[in-house]
Amino acid sequence: MATEGSLLSRDGKPSPSYDVTSRRFRLAVIMSLLNTVYRSVFRRTSTFALSIVLGVVLFERAFDQGADLLFERLNQGKMWKHIKHNYEE
């Protein structure tokens, strides 16, 4: 089973012939991950389009909330909700 391309040995641990910290190993991990993503998502147009739709939904949420968070951090103490407790009981 231990072919040249396989990164893990039979018991699931990295093969001793591969240095986990090496650049080559990381590249190989990225390659195998991308291959899995390609086979499961990108290969069919339907799943590709679905992944784009889901990606937009998640990206919009993350991007908008991240931008708001950054804005509030840059304007800490200047906005009404930061100074509201001084004026309202």
Partner: peptide
């Protein structure tokens, strides 16, 4: 490297 290259393009 076929699938790797294609998946990069699709990504």
């Amino acid at each position: 490297s076929d699938e790797y290259r294609k998946s990069f393009s699709y990504l």
